[in-house]
Design a protein around this nucleic acid. Structure first.
Lengths: 132, 132
DNA sequence: CATAATCCTTCCAGTAGATGGAAGGTCAAG
DNA sequence: CTTGACCTTCCATCTACTGGAAGGATTATG
């Protein structure tokens, strides 16, 4: 399989796959013409990475997960730890975004949104009191 | 005021303030010794940016907001539009993160987390069925 | 068989938003 | 006078790609 086919199969752009090779996430075999070629294992591996990335795992997380994935003797506890740490990070981001949303919703709701220059949003951003 | 004092007053690192000058978000006056110096207006402006950034507005949003902030004749509707667009973006991110969290929580809850190699998390990432 | 379209290669640059560090000038205190 | 804190510029680095140019390989069409 050439890179284009793998891109379609794995859901990752060809550019991204080359990039992953560049940073050592994978090694690709080369044909006589210099083209990379891939087998089903590569496709599975790239799909794995694609899924993990879409769940917000960093490239470094992916490296760890891939080595655990490849290691027949790994303990599931190791994987669970990485996933748990990641969950904590996600939960924190959600909390922060919700706080942003609440503040901003409050500011927006106070704003008339008309031709007048008075704007509670700008006032709020400028540091004026924004009571609960 | 020197940059360090402004950094303390605005809550932004000095490095960040220099960076903001670099990208043209602000212009700083210079003393005879080459040191930047700032007045209260600058501090207010930087606090404004600091707040907007912490609410997730991009630097470009900040540019728009600052020019609206400085414009006595602006309509609050303009500000409201920017804030609303931003709210939509935040809501989308929250939804995505919640979906991630749910999938990952499901995978984690299925994982024994022991010494055994069977791991539903890796299976899930590898593309196995993860029923609702 | 010629040619055009598509696919592949490498390499370089850029994105957002800073942050870290080196090398060196300035200033205030003791 | 020296020490240390603070300031300056410049260059590199981070994450995770993405875009594009220049050019070679392959495939499809006339």
């Amino acid at each position: 399989m050439n890179i284009g086919e793998v891109a379609t199969a794995s859901g990752l752009p060809a550019k991204t796959i080359r990039y992953y090779e560049d940073i050592g996430l994978l090694r690709a075999a080369r044909g006589a013409n210099g083209y990379r070629h891939f087998d089903d294992r590569d496709v599975r591996m790239l799909s794995f990475v694609s899924r993990a990335r879409s769940l917000g795992f960093s490239i470094d997380d992916c490296r760890s997960l891939l080595s655990l994935y490849a290691d027949r003797d790994r303990a599931s506890a190791d994987v669970k730890r990485i996933a748990r740490e990641h969950l904590t990070g996600i939960a924190k981001k959600i909390t922060e975004l919700e706080a942003m949303r609440d503040t901003l919703e409050d500011l927006v709701s106070r704003c008339q949104g008309d031709d007048h220059p008075d704007c509670p949003i700008l006032d709020g951003l400028a540091g004026a009191e924004v009571p609960q």
